[in-house]
């Protein structure tokens, strides 16, 4: 469904992605692991169309979207939960969610809102509060809820567990698993590589802008190199 070939990107003269090949099939949960600065965020941004691409292609369901606007990609169902949550702090929780459905017809947004509230009841309780007043875990739920409002077919999650207490991390991972459905594919970026690979169908290991290893989640978890580099044992 999502097909990335030889994707390259750079910050000025400094390359950040050096020819990435990556596939995401319908209903798959794929994990991307890599050290800080490996280029994970850059890759997700390039997929979302908010990071200039210097080479290669991005296709969705066969259609080339390498040069498409970020708005068009959201319309096609490529939706990202960015690193650091990036909620609209001064706006209310409900406004944040409604903006998530910005590219959707108004009638659809109502149904999506009910689904998101059913999934994250705390957001319903806090619907009128400004997003900036939520706790870190609640903001992460809001960021995920906002992305779900766009009815994603490809959901990109950038370090959803970052900075959260262990109990919340488990909750977020449970959510991620609940989100994968027959027609939604998830690309999960995590520093918490062990937990992420454990729930993944497949995984990719990214090092300094290149995919150095790929395999099933279980195979990567068992890999000696991955264990010593990313799992610490």
């Amino acid at each position: 469904m999502l097909e990335i070939r030889s994707l390259a990107s750079a910050y000025g003269r400094i390359p950040a992605l050096k020819g990435i090949d990556l596939d995401l099939r319908p209903g798959e949960l794929v994990t991307l692991v890599g050290a800080n600065g490996a280029g994970k965020t850059t890759l997700l941004r390039a997929i979302s169309g908010v990071q200039p691409v210097t080479g290669g292609t991005v296709r969705i369901s066969g259609a080339d979207i390498t040069r498409a606007s970020s708005r068009h990609r959201v319309r096609l169902g490529i939706v990202q939960v960015p690193e650091g949550r990036q909620v609209f702090g001064p706006l209310s929780v409900e406004d944040n969610l409604r903006l998530g459905a910005y590219t959707r017809p108004r009638a659809e947004a109502e149904g999506s809102l009910e689904r998101v509230y059913a999934m994250f009841p705390v957001l319903k309780d806090k619907r009128g509060s400004s997003a900036g007043t939520l706790s870190g875990g609640q903001q992460q739920m809001l960021a995920m809820g906002r992305a779900l409002m766009a009815q994603p077919r490809v959901l990109l999650l950038d370090e959803p567990s970052m900075g959260l207490a262990p109990r919340l991390v488990a909750e977020i991972f449970a959510c991620v698993q609940a989100l994968r459905t027959a027609d939604t594919a998830i690309l999960l970026v995590e520093q918490n590589a062990g937990a992420a690979l454990a729930i993944a169908d497949r995984g990719y290991v990214l090092e300094t802008g290149q995919i150095v290893l790929t395999g099933t989640g279980a195979a990567l978890l068992a890999d000696a190199g991955v264990r010593s580099a990313y799992l610490g044992f």
């Binding site: 990036q86 909620v87 903006l99």
Partner: peptide, 23 residues
């Protein structure tokens, strides 16, 4: 209005605004 809020959202966080599909 949603459009008005989209303007506010963009001023607060341009990247997040782009990621929800605001031009």
């Amino acid at each position: 209005t949603l459009l008005g809020k989209a303007l506010l959202a963009t001023s607060h966080n341009r990247l997040a605004a782009q990621l929800v599909g605001i031009s």
